[in-house]
Amino acid sequence: MIDFQDVSVLYPNGVRALDGVNVTVQKGEFAFIVGATGSGKSTLLKLIYREELPTQGQVRVMGDDLTDLHPGAVPYLRRKIGIVFQDFRLLPQKTVWENLAFALRVIGAPSREIVRRIPEILDLVSLTHRCDAFPHQLSGGEQQRASIARALVNNPPLLVADEPTGNLDPDTSWDIIQLISRINIRGATVLCATHDREIVDKMRRRVVVLDRGHIIRDQQRSSYDDES
């Protein structure tokens, strides 16, 4: 599903965000990317949805070599990836329903399909009752659920979450991670960057630890800190 080979990213300001990273994520996996602020977690995720390009190495996502991908093909890559951000990034002038509908309109879905699909997803994220609300009328947890719903609405095989619980209280964070876990069980590959120790420890999933651009640990069914 995802394959990084000797990937380095050097920003124009001289910061080396990633340095010779090699990592592979199989279809259906759930992996946490952990590490301190500035360790390169967000850069690694941005490479997956082609927000950044590597200065060295090769990034392959669902069979596409992203270093070679034509800019015109980027939107089509992103339609296969659901992206969830710490700051939710919902369209502020659109209701929850319209935010979801927009993601479906983008792929040319007919109205019939939109009317069928959105209630299903809103039900999955328990947000049916808030479908007419604008983002600023929602709580943080509700906004994040709306953002996850949008990421899932067109059934992408890959979900990328960048600090999805970063702005949420512990209870809501746990709900959100449970929701993402259910999505993984339904078949989507999930890559989740976080520095929420409690969640990583409770989930016992694959953990990839980054430190100053290097992968220093990659363990299955692991916790935030090294157990060996």
Binding site: Y49, P75, F102, A103, V106, R150
Partner: peptide, 10 residues
């Protein structure tokens, strides 16, 4: 930017 992230073409 958000529209680009959900795969909208230019």
């Amino acid at each position: 930017r958000i529209m680009q992230m959900v795969g909208a073409t230019n």
